[in-house]
């Protein structure tokens, strides 16, 4: 069984950073790359070659990254709750 080292405190910044990826910046960049390529190549022959796959893929990757971040912060929250419950159960009310 796979084991992961996680600390709730150290997970949160990573989760937040992962969730911040999907701000549309990368997708805009990918679209700009595509426009530059097609226009720089000149003519319209390249349009059929490169359709919108790059921006679409980058957009999906960013979305998926957000999902991973969501799961991570969910796990961090669950750990905090579990730790709190354990402290409560052992009578440690700090």
């Amino acid at each position: 069984m796979q084991q992961l080292d996680v600390a709730p405190g150290s997970l949160d910044p990573v989760a937040a950073a992962l969730r911040a990826v999907d701000d549309g910046g990368m997708t805009r960049l990918a679209r700009a790359v595509l426009d530059d390529l097609v226009e720089g190549f000149g003519g319209s022959e390249l349009v059929g070659e490169v359709d919108g796959t790059l921006p679409q893929l980058v957009d999906r990757v960013a979305q998926q990254t957000t999902l991973v971040g969501d799961r991570l912060s969910g796990a961090a929250a669950a750990y905090r709750r579990a730790e709190w419950l354990a402290r409560l159960a052992t009578g440690d009310h700090r």
Binding site: D5, V6, A7, A15
Partner: peptide, 17 residues
């Protein structure tokens, strides 16, 4: 994210994540 430091997280949820 897949290898943080500190508390140990294992079991099915960890494996899936």
């Amino acid at each position: 994210a897949a290898a943080g430091r500190g508390m140990r997280w294992d079991g099915a949820a960890a494996a899936v994540f």
